[in-house]
């Protein structure tokens, strides 16, 4: 998982003022989730390639650094990449390569792996874009405006506020351990002892989180908070012209791609083949 350093970089990216940054949070959230859902159901590589191109164009428009975005996508790929790497060897089909120990690569397995990787790249690019153009609090507020239950939306919003605090807390503990030459991966130190120290670290984090939760509750209660309270003041914001253009272009691209997928893309051979 990414560390807090990258989250801080992300928060800096969200402070930019491009057309996409200034758009309504709900529109950004819904459209990028819509692209992910469409990508997950797509079975043609060419469709996913066009979606990726569209997302790269959005990254360019939003003035988000390409270098940072690619770095983030590359860092996230190994999670799914591990499972994808096995696909060419485990899918039954026409054998196109035989290696040592009887390992066989099938054409269907290879195509399936490429499809999964393409879906994963589109989904990760969407997430990288969303998190680069929407501050965390804006996403939390968008969820609330879109009908997330009041309690869940408040938990989500408060959780984000305390996320940074706990990372700082954890870093302080880890720096203190490092200053005392503690290395959890040092094999010269007995494993049991290392785990005990890590256990105490986790226990302290858990305890501080719990006690902080109680303190926050007390301070909120003393300011009139009850289970009927609402932490939000929904500012009614009407969608502007840029939002409607963004919605229209995205829908047009997805509908256009779907029509082409059903009528013309099969002519492109491997790229337009339906992989199921």
């Amino acid at each position: 998982m990414n560390g807090i350093g990258s989250v801080r970089e992300l928060e800096k990216e969200t402070e930019k003022e491009s057309i996409l940054h200034l758009m309504d949070g709900r529109v950004k959230l819904i459209l990028l989730i819509f692209i992910i859902v469409y990508a997950v159901f797509s079975t043609q590589i060419v469709v996913l390639a066009f979606l990726e191109l569209y997302l790269l164009l959005l990254i360019y428009i939003s003035q988000v650094s390409f270098k940072t975005s690619f770095k983030r996508i590359l860092l996230l790929l190994p999670f799914g990449g591990f499972i994808i790497a096995f696909q060419p060897f485990i899918h039954p089909g026409d054998v196109i390569w035989t290696g040592i120990f009887g390992l066989q690569v099938t054409q269907q397995g290879l195509m399936w792996a490429v499809l999964l990787m393409s879906r994963l790249i589109v989904a990760l690019t969407s997430i990288v874009l969303l998190s680069s153009i929407s501050p965390m609090q804006e996403v939390a507020q968008s969820f609330r405006k879109l009908g997330m239950p009041r309690e869940l939306a408040m938990i989500f919003s408060l959780m984000i506020r305390f996320l940074f605090m706990f990372y700082d807390e954890l870093h302080r503990i880890m720096h203190a351990q490092k200053a005392r030459c503690f290395d959890a991966f040092n094999k010269k130190i007995p494993y049991k002892w290392r785990m005990k120290q890590l256990g105490y670290t986790v226990a302290m984090m858990f305890l501080r989180a719990y006690e902080q939760g109680e303190t926050i509750y007390m301070s909120m209660a003393s300011r009139g908070f009850s289970d009927e309270s609402n932490l939000y003041h929904d500012r009614k914001k009407k969608l502007g012209r840029t939002e409607y253009i963004y919605i229209g272009v995205t829908l047009l691209i997805v509908i256009g791609l779907q029509i082409l997928a059903m009528t013309h893309f099969y002519e492109l051979g491997v790229l337009g083949m339906n992989i199921i």
């Binding site: 919003s157 408060l158 605090m165 990372y167």
Partner: peptide
């Protein structure tokens, strides 16, 4: 009851940090 929101929120943040170790 009314303790739910701050407690679960802060615990989630703590668990999130713990998961990064």
């Amino acid at each position: 009851d009314e303790k739910l929101i701050p407690l679960i929120a802060v615990l989630s943040a703590g668990i999130f940090a713990i998961m990064s170790m």
